[in-house]
Simulated scan of single mutants.
Amino acid sequence: MCLGIPGEIVEIISGQTELAMVDVVGVRRAINTGLLGEGEVRPGDWVLVHVGFAMSKIDEAEAAATLALLSGLGQAYTDELEALAESDIT
């Protein structure tokens, strides 16, 4: 199962206009933000992450609610976090 997981942008990667570091429940990974447009995300913004791409911006309340819902999925959620932890697009 593939899920879109909320993550908080913690850093825009220097010299890479379409890459940002995101924190997803303590897992930090570089993601591609190109689908949102250059300059559309800043540290502190929340995005919905799917297969290494920021699919859309969401607000913090929606992120918290989605994370609570996803944590209830059990193994599918754990599998998605493990896949994220193992990914590297840099």
Results as ranks from 00 to 15, higher is better:
Met1Trp: 09
Cys2Arg: 11
Leu3Lys: 01
Gly4Pro: 00
Gly4Cys: 08
Gly4Gln: 13
Gly4Ser: 13
Gly7Ser: 02
Gly7Thr: 05
Glu8Leu: 08
Ile9His: 01
Ile9Leu: 02
Val10Leu: 04
Val10His: 03
Glu11His: 04
Ile12Val: 11
Ile13Leu: 14
Ser14Phe: 00
Ser14Gln: 08
Ser14Glu: 13
Ser14Val: 00
Gly15Gln: 03
Gly15Val: 04
Gln16Lys: 14
Thr17Ile: 14
Glu18Leu: 13
Glu18Trp: 12
Leu19Ser: 12
Leu19Lys: 11
Ala20Phe: 09
Asp23Glu: 12
Val24Glu: 04
Gly26Arg: 00
Gly26Pro: 00
Val27Gln: 06
Val27Asp: 00
Val27Ser: 04
Val27Met: 05
Arg28Pro: 00
Arg28Ile: 01
Arg28Ser: 01
Arg28Ala: 00
Arg28Phe: 02
Arg28Lys: 15
Arg29Gln: 13
Arg29Gly: 01
Ala30Ile: 00
Ile31Gln: 05
Ile31Met: 12
Ile31Asp: 03
Asn32Val: 09
Asn32Pro: 06
Thr33Glu: 08
Thr33Cys: 11
Gly34Thr: 04
Gly34His: 07
Gly34Leu: 07
Leu35Asp: 06
Leu35Arg: 15
Leu36Phe: 10
Leu36Val: 04
Leu36Thr: 04
Leu36Asp: 08
Gly39Val: 10
Gly39Cys: 09
Val41Ile: 10
Pro43His: 04
Pro43Glu: 07
Val47Ala: 11
Val47Cys: 14
Val47Lys: 03
Leu48Thr: 00
Val49Trp: 01
His50Val: 05
His50Asn: 07
Val51Cys: 12
Phe53Asp: 13
Phe53Cys: 05
Ala54Gln: 05
Met55Ile: 13
Met55Phe: 02
Met55Thr: 14
Met55Gly: 03
Ser56Lys: 14
Ser56Asn: 09
Asp59Gln: 09
Asp59Glu: 13
Glu60Tyr: 01
Glu60Ala: 15
Glu62Ala: 15
Glu62Gly: 09
Glu62Phe: 10
Ala63Ser: 05
Ala63Cys: 04
Ala63Arg: 01
Ala63Asp: 05
Ala64Thr: 09
Ala64Cys: 04
Ala65His: 14
Ala65Gln: 15
Thr66Glu: 14
Thr66Asp: 06
Leu67Ala: 07
Ala68Leu: 13
Ala68Met: 08
Ala68Ser: 14
Ala68Gln: 11
Leu69Lys: 10
Leu70Ile: 05
Leu70Met: 08
Ser71His: 03
Ser71Glu: 14
Gly72Met: 14
Gly72Val: 00
Gly72Cys: 05
Leu73Cys: 02
Leu73Asp: 02
Leu73Tyr: 12
Leu73Val: 01
Gly74Phe: 04
Gly74Leu: 07
Gly74His: 09
Gln75Ala: 14
Gln75Arg: 13
Ala76Val: 15
Tyr77Trp: 15
Thr78Gly: 07
Thr78Lys: 12
Asp79Val: 07
Glu80His: 06
Glu82Cys: 04
Ala83Cys: 11
Ala83Tyr: 10
Leu84His: 02
Leu84Glu: 02
Leu84Tyr: 02
Leu84Ser: 01
Ala85Val: 09
Ala85Pro: 06
Ala85Gln: 14
Ala85Cys: 08
Asp88Phe: 15
Asp88Ala: 14
Ile89Tyr: 10
Thr90Tyr: 12
